[in-house]
């Protein structure tokens, strides 16, 4: 083990370790992501059709809720992880992916009970998103005071 320096080995690993298939994964992300967004558009169009009196903002909110429900349900029945394995970013970035990151630990840890399992572990992955989001919104709000 004297012939190999640490740096040399780190360089070897960096150079030779297998990389993600760039084009295939990006294409998959593009298609699945685009499709999920189209579903979202479809839901909002449908809501507008059924409830013509609804304001634009309410439609947007309801669309989000419906999409979150879909993401949560697909996670719970064990479909979303397979979709994620195929699409990567295409299923992480839509709001359904956010729902997946909340529901998956909740479903995973229900074996530890409701209190310290489901409730405590629910935000293991999504916690940073909520914390960053709220902190950012307060910063933006305070900046807004001076505009």
């Amino acid at each position: 083990m004297n012939m190999l320096s640490k740096q040399e080995y780190v360089d070897f690993v960096k150079e030779k370790s297998p990389k993600s298939p760039m084009w295939r994964s990006m294409l998959a992300a593009f298609f699945v992501g685009g499709l999920i967004c189209c579903v979202g558009e479809g839901v909002s169009d449908l809501l507008k059709l059924i409830f013509p009196a609804m304001t634009e903002e309410d439609v947007a909110t309801w669309t989000t809720v419906v999409m979150i429900f879909a993401g949560s349900f697909l996670t719970a029945i064990g479909v979303y992880d397979k979709l994620g394995h195929f699409a990567g970013g295409g299923s992480i970035i839509p709001i359904t992916g956010f729902a997946n990151s909340v529901v998956s630990p909740a479903v995973e840890y229900n074996r530890e009970g409701v209190f310290f399992g489901v409730c405590a572990k629910m935000f293991v992955i999504a916690g940073p998103i909520i914390v960053f989001g709220i902190v950012a919104s307060v910063i933006v709000g305070i900046i807004g005071l001076f505009l």
Partner: peptide
């Protein structure tokens, strides 16, 4: 579950 992520999380495992 212990070393990585919940089973149902839709992430991609890296090729390594």
């Amino acid at each position: 579950r212990q070393y990585r992520y919940p089973l149902e999380l839709g992430n991609q495992r890296t090729p390594t």
